[in-house]
Design a protein around this nucleic acid. Structure first.
Lengths: 159, 159
DNA sequence: TATTGTTATACTCTATAACTATA
DNA sequence: TATAGTTATAGAGTATAACAATA
């Protein structure tokens, strides 16, 4: 149990925060932006974005997966998924083979080039994750993971 | 100490996740998107976005504040701050009075209309926060807060 | 009618580059 | 030279509306 005081007030002591720093959503948002922005820069050279890597990751693990399934997993709309898929296809990392069982649906497959990029990106992501949680003990790490997941799943359930 | 298993696998059991669900950044990101998207919809009627409310909040607590100070607090670039400020001024929620001491700088002040919107938005944000953490015990709440803050401050320090 | 994918469009948040005015 | 603000532009991620093709 740590009692040290951790606040954003220390960063800009000249500002009166008036309770804004009590808003958990603000900290989750700014922390997220910080990580994502850094990760984007690290992935830039291999022509993928963080979200594109996540899509690539699932396509590799689930050959022939449908866009609808990805939409459900990430809880984003189908046209949003399609935008990532289109970029990945344009760069030759993914191909879309129409299903023979249901000709409405397409099946997504990763290409050789896509696998190469995914492998490299996974290394960068692992490093990024390690750096992100380096300040936490292993118990704190698993607690943060558990609490974020709990909050997310509870919110996702509500619709 | 809870031992129940909380995973995203349960949401889409048909998908093989291959370790993607071990990536903490993914969960922070999707949780954030979920909250922000909801909050945006709730604030839509009063013509402000979540980030605009945060700016309004600090301007009210720090009358005459400079855009540079807001930039430092949020760790975003000056032109990004300016975009929010411009929207808020266009809607009559903020005014920009040039400083007499340093004529490069402007001082931001909230308007009466801005105060009305801020008050209403704070109620919505408080409700949103409560809903977000309703699934957590009070100890879990403060732990999540502490851990996010710790990770954020550690990452922010590194530059 | 319902589902899958697609296209077009728009909005939020963020960044970089280049500029003006002032210190 | 350095700082405050501004303008223009771009890119990532998200959404809604409307459509075609298929079931």
């Amino acid at each position: 149990m740590t009692t040290e005081l951790l606040t954003r007030q220390a960063i800009t002591p000249e500002l009166v925060l008036d309770g804004l720093d009590d808003v958990l959503g603000l900290h989750i948002g700014t922390a997220n932006t910080l990580f994502v922005t850094r990760l984007e820069r690290q992935l830039e050279a291999m022509k993928v974005t963080p979200k594109q890597v996540a899509i690539l990751w699932l396509v590799k693990a689930n050959p022939g997966v449908k866009q609808t399934d990805l939409s459900r997993f990430f809880k984003i709309e189908r046209p949003t998924v399609h935008q990532f898929v289109r970029s990945l296809m344009r760069n030759g990392f993914l191909i879309n083979e129409p299903s023979k069982l249901d000709r409405r649906a397409g099946g997504l497959w990763i290409t050789g080039e896509g696998e190469t990029v995914l492998s490299a990106a996974r290394v960068i992501i692992a490093e990024s994750e390690a750096a992100l949680t380096a300040c936490l003990s292993s118990h704190e790490k698993s607690e943060l993971y558990r609490l974020i997941m709990k909050v997310y799943l509870s919110a996702a359930q509500k619709g």
